[in-house]
């Protein structure tokens, strides 16, 4: 387990997890995870089912309270109602949309909750970025699964978060959707956001990542900078690591 060392100053640290632990009924699901991401960096987290990836994201989004350790966004600890939450965007595997409302209404509602000055414009921009602007007046209920996913991503990026958390974001997207997502993620990073992407798909994750981690039994079994990783051997080593576990 080799943690990348950073010498740069802390001013551009976007998200910082420090020995995060979360237990359910006495059983630790996330068990001491630490990492730091700076503006523009992207951490890809791989791991088998039940490794604690989703729980990690929920901790980082502030939806779950850590049992121990802490999580800071822009140097501020996440708390209920804290402004730190305003800097986080979350794409979960549930859409988190209201099916009776239109795509635009859903995204605009989110924009208002984050206090954006011109929510209508922001919503239009986000929907255009995800290439669903032409369906913005359709109730979410009538959209296909893939289009709903795009609206859900638009909802997560409408407030231009400094930290974007994605749980299997590519699942269910077609080629156009995937391309739009990649473009949106790249654009977010270029404007200084850090990304945490949880996925089973190693190719997809490694393509985005500046850092890669393999999660197993609530811990980072491996954590390194993408630069030092050869994709082919990483896939093989991942298989070994995951199968020896079972």
């Amino acid at each position: 387990m080799s943690a990348p060392s950073h010498i740069a100053d802390d001013s551009d640290v976007a998200v910082e997890a420090e020995s995060l632990v979360r237990a359910f009924g006495g059983r630790p699901v996330v068990d001491g995870v630490s990492f730091t991401l700076r503006a523009g960096e992207c951490l890809a987290v791989f791991g088998p089912n039940g490794a604690g990836k989703t729980t990690l994201l929920r901790l980082l989004s502030g939806l779950l309270k850590p049992s121990a350790g802490s999580c800071r966004v822009g140097g501020v600890v996440l708390r209920s109602g804290s402004r730190a939450r305003a800097q986080v965007g979350f794409v979960s595997h549930a859409g988190m949309l209201y099916s009776a409302l239109t795509a635009r209404e859903n995204v605009e509602f989110s924009a208002r909750l984050y206090g954006l000055r011109s929510p209508a414009d922001a919503a239009r921009r986000a929907l255009t970025a995800m290439r669903v602007a032409d369906r913005s007046e359709t109730p979410v209920r009538s959209l296909s699964r893939g289009l709903q996913q795009r609206v859900s991503i638009a909802r997560a990026i409408v407030h231009e978060p400094r930290v974007l958390l994605c749980d299997e974001p590519y699942t269910g997207l077609d080629d156009v959707g995937s391309a739009a997502l990649t473009e949106a993620l790249t654009e977010r990073r270029a404007s200084g956001a850090a990304l945490v992407v949880v996925t089973h798909n190693l190719g997809e994750g490694l393509a985005l990542a500046t850092h890669a981690a393999i999660m197993r039994r609530g811990r980072f079994a491996r954590y390194e900078q993408r630069g030092g990783v050869d994709a082919t051997s990483y896939v093989r080593e991942y298989r070994e690591l995951v199968t020896t576990d079972a």
Partner: peptide
Amino acid sequence: GVEQADRAIDALLAAPVER
């Protein structure tokens, strides 16, 4: 019920608003 259906409640809880 409408919050629970697609876990929209999570988006509300993660937003920077008081519970």
